[in-house]
């Protein structure tokens, strides 16, 4: 399967997963995981910058359409896409990858992927929840939402990634 088809399918599946299943998870009113960001996390290393931004924005906007929150997820996911190259450079050290591969655990290792995904998810959720509150009022409440939701998003994303990664022979 080529990269385009693979990513298109991921886009649709993650959108449906978010809208129909994850959005219905309500634990204590604080935990709202946003697993759709996995789409942007898994785009190939070699993707051109402009396409990365447009796809990030597009994914967020698609979620916004279903949640009646225009601009909210689009903005946060756009920032995630914008920061992705910098975070990849940061966690990869000297030899930044520039291949058609997707960031994953098979070649990069668990530790690499967890650092990479956690940094970007935390960034995304921080922006998202502050944009949602649209103020710094009830600061501790927002912080609590960010930290709990980040942990749950990371957990679900890791489960998905472990599930879709083929074991090495």
């Amino acid at each position: 399967m080529n990269s385009y088809a693979k990513n298109a399918i991921r886009f649709v599946l993650l959108l449906l997963l978010q809208v129909f299943i994850v959005n219905n998870i309500r634990i204590g009113g604080y935990i709202n995981p946003y697993v759709y960001v996995l789409f942007v996390l898994l785009l190939p290393f070699s993707i051109p910058g402009w396409l990365l931004l447009i796809l990030g924005f597009g994914m967020g906007l698609a979620v916004d359409l279903f949640m009646a929150t225009p601009g909210l997820h689009a903005g946060a996911t756009l920032l995630l896409a914008f920061m992705r190259p910098a975070v990849i450079r940061l966690v990869s050290g000297a030899q930044s990858p520039d291949t058609d591969e997707s960031p994953g655990i098979s070649d990069k290792g668990k530790r690499w992927f967890i650092t990479y995904s956690f940094t970007l998810i935390l960034l995304h959720h921080t922006v998202l929840f502050f944009l949602e509150a649209f103020s710094f009022a009830r600061f501790t409440d927002t912080i609590l939402r960010i930290s709990l939701s980040t942990l749950f998003t990371e957990l679900i994303i890791l489960l998905i990634v472990f599930f879709i990664t083929k074991p090495k022979k």
């Binding site: 402009w50 931004l53 924005f57 601009g71 909210l72 689009a74 903005g75 756009l78 920032l79 649209f134």
Partner: peptide
């Protein structure tokens, strides 16, 4: 492009 799309998001949001 980031700034352009960012401005668009903020506009939609407000």
């Amino acid at each position: 492009l980031f700034m352009l799309l960012g401005a668009l998001s903020i506009w939609l949001l407000t």
